[in-house]
Every structure is written in structure tokens, then in C-alpha cells.
């Protein structure tokens, strides 16, 4: 199988729409920015106070006053603006962010999301994740389908502390694209080199399989 992460972020990028204001989470979701279709224009929001995040700087462009929410040095695109943390989260909670892409530890049949702590392990904090899932108009989870140990991450019920209840709209993994609906998890697409049975085998939740399942 070709690079899992590359496959996931390329598929997520196809969900972007022209004019979207988008917040990309730390880690893999940040890579979605490298695959924005050429014919659309989106604006990246960083919760530390920037609309219009640009690519990483060259050595000469590095500015310690200009970072993203992952604390990485970045640049600004023309037409950017800066604002305080309070204004930034007014954008988030107020439903002004069209889409957020986040990672996950677990997602379940109701669209519940757990991505901020594992009891008994080091607690780092939720940062802005709880605000993003509560406020963004659409929440896409970009994650590897299973854990490193081979366990399932898509479950009937999350067992870890939640980041938010009923917040996830779409799950994109290297194996499948799954939509969270009122009826449950609907298998929309599977990867070109897998089968529906294989996806089911790696999922500990009920998958609703429509007549037509796409390929990606």
C-alpha cells in the first residue's frame, strides 16, 4: 500500500470547497494544506490568531512572531489578518469556521470523538480541540484506520474520555471514507486496494453498506 498518510490527506483535500475557512489540526491534518485543489481558494485559520496561514518559511523568511497552532514557524499569505485568542475562538464557536480536520484516538457510531487523553498516561491538555468540534460547521477526522497495535479505532462506543459528543461528520482513513449519519456509520468509499469485507474486519462498529460504494 502506498503511503497511508499521503492517501488520507489527499482524500480529505477533496472535501474542501471554494471559499471555505478551514482549521487544520496538529500533525497529519496539517498536511492537507499541501493538496488543496488548484481551482479552489480556501483560507486557513490558526487558532493562535491568524487567518491566511501560508507555507513554511525559507530560512531567510523565518519570523519568531509568526507561528501556527502547532508552534511551527509559518508564513502569511496576501490578505491575511491577525487577531486575539478571544476573537479567534469567537470565529470557532460562532460557526464561522466551515471545516475542521482533526486526528482521533477513537470515533464511534454516534459520531462521538475521543482525541485528547488516555487515562493513566501523560495528560497534555485539550488545547483548542473541544472548541473546534463544538463550533466548526463540519468536522472531518483524518486518521489511520487502526491503532499501531492492530486494534480498532472506529468503535460502537468510545471508551476514552470524549472531546465532544456527536460531533464528527466524516471519517477518512487509508481504507475507507465513512459518513456519520442519524442511522449510523455509512461506508461511502473504500480504498482501491481493499475490500468491503476487509474494512469491516478492521472496524469494531456496524457499517451500513449502501448499494454503491465508491473507490478512492
Amino acid at each position: 500500500m502506498r503511503d497511508k498518510r499521503g492517501r488520507i490527506v489527499q482524500r480529505v483535500a477533496r472535501e474542501l470547497k471554494d471559499g471555505d475557512y478551514v482549521n487544520l489540526g496538529i500533525g497529519m491534518p496539517t498536511l492537507v494544506a499541501n493538496h488543496v485543489p488548484a481551482d479552489i481558494d480556501i483560507t486557513l485559520h490558526s487558532e493562535n490568531g491568524l487567518l491566511g496561514v501560508g507555507p513554511f518559511p525559507t530560512d531567510a523568511e523565518i519570523d519568531p512572531d509568526l507561528i501556527n497552532a502547532g508552534k511551527e514557524t509559518v508564513t502569511e499569505v496576501p490578505g491575511s489578518c491577525y487577531f486575539s485568542s478571544a476573537d479567534s475562538f469567537a470565529m470557532v464557536r460562532g460557526g464561522h469556521i466551515d471545516l475542521t480536520v482533526l486526528g482521533a484516538l477513537q470515533v464511534d457510531e454516534e459520531g462521538n470523538l475521543a482525541n485528547w487523553m488516555i487515562p493513566g498516561k501523560k495528560v497534555k491538555g485539550m488545547g483548542g480541540a473541544m472548541d473546534l468540534v463544538a463550533g466548526a460547521r463540519r468536522v472531518i477526522i483524518a486518521m489511520e484506520h487502526g491503532t499501531k497495535e492492530g486494534g480498532a479505532k472506529i468503535l460502537k462506543r468510545c471508551t476514552l474520555p470524549l472531546t465532544g459528543p456527536r460531533v464528527v461528520d466524516l471519517i477518512v482513513t487509508e481504507l475507507a471514507v465513512i459518513e456519520v449519519t442519524d442511522k449510523g456509520l455509512v461506508l461511502k468509499e473504500i480504498a482501491e486496494d481493499t475490500t468491503i469485507e476487509d474494512v469491516k474486519k478492521h472496524t469494531d462498529a456496524t457499517l451500513i453498506v449502501p448499494d454503491h460504494v465508491g473507490r478512492f
Binding site: 478571544a86 475562538f89 483548542g128 480541540a129
Partner: peptide
């Protein structure tokens, strides 16, 4: 002691 607060809630509580 540590108290963890969602970032937006932290900002708005201060506001």
C-alpha cells in the same frame, strides 16, 4: 496543581 481548560473557554473566561 494543574487545571486544564479548553483554549477557547480559557480565552472567553478571561474576556
Amino acid at each position: 496543581d494543574v487545571e486544564l481548560i479548553p483554549q477557547g473557554t480559557l480565552a472567553e473566561r478571561i474576556r
